[in-house]
């Protein structure tokens, strides 16, 4: 028992890194994803092509490769290259990657809204921005809750990838202790933590779905 208590200190520090990665990535990548989805659907072809290519790159290469690229290769690019501290590099890679997935989820949601909704809004005198804000996006949110919930839960576990930058997140901390103490308990503590976080998220998303269930379509 005493052993577990001494383990908890570093484990909680690791959990804190994991939680920070999770929240910052989520808060930044959701709005970025929305903006990207609108750009992807833009009538201005070069813009939509650019975003399409971006999404292909981000979804077509491993997140771990993107992490390594941002941390090790980005500083080597002439003129624009910058050396980021490990935490910022990790956030940048995660946000860029997750925004691409969220963009496709939002695009699916937006395109599933019937044309008649836009027409009714236009006939009533609403501008594009008013239509999106008041009519389209509120309906999109209802439809994207399940896929967003999926991605969010994946993100919880993906944060463990930052071990490649030698960052001491929850999982890497656990492994270090396991290797030092020859005791498997840290793995179990880590598993419980991930499960608890997923449980909380599932509960939150269920609440969201319930709230949106107020109306059917």
């Amino acid at each position: 028992m005493e052993k577990i208590i001494t383990m908890m200190g570093p484990m909680l520090d690791g959990a804190s890194i994991t939680l920070q990665m999770f929240f910052i990535t989520l808060v930044l990548s959701l709005p970025l994803g929305l903006i990207l989805s609108l750009a992807r659907m833009s009538k201005y072809k070069p813009l939509s092509f650019l975003v399409e290519t971006y999404i292909w790159l981000m979804r077509g290469t491993p997140l771990m490769l993107q992490l390594l690229f941002v941390y090790y290769a980005l500083p080597l690019i002439p003129y624009i290259g910058i050396k980021l501290p490990d935490f910022s590099a990790a956030i940048l890679a995660f946000v860029l990657n997750y925004a691409a997935y969220f963009a496709e989820i939002f695009r699916g949601g937006i395109q599933s809204i019937e044309k008649g909704q836009y027409e009714a809004s236009k006939v009533l005198g609403m501008t594009y921005v008013q239509t999106m804000r008041r009519i389209i996006l509120p309906q999109v949110l209802k439809r994207v809750v399940p896929p967003i919930s999926n991605e969010t839960i994946t993100l919880v576990k993906d944060t463990s990838l930052i071990y490649v930058l030698a960052m001491n997140d929850l999982l890497r901390t656990a492994r270090t202790i396991v290797q030092r103490e020859f005791d498997m308990t840290p793995f179990i503590i880590a598993a419980v933590f991930y499960l608890a976080m997923t449980l909380v998220l599932t509960w939150i998303f269920n609440k969201l779905e319930e709230r949106y269930a107020a109306y059917d379509e």
Partner: peptide, 14 residues
């Protein structure tokens, strides 16, 4: 100045 009524109603479901 012109109101319109559609075949498919197009009410805002939310």
């Amino acid at each position: 100045k012109m109101g319109m009524v559609f075949q498919q109603f197009n009410l805002f479901p939310h």
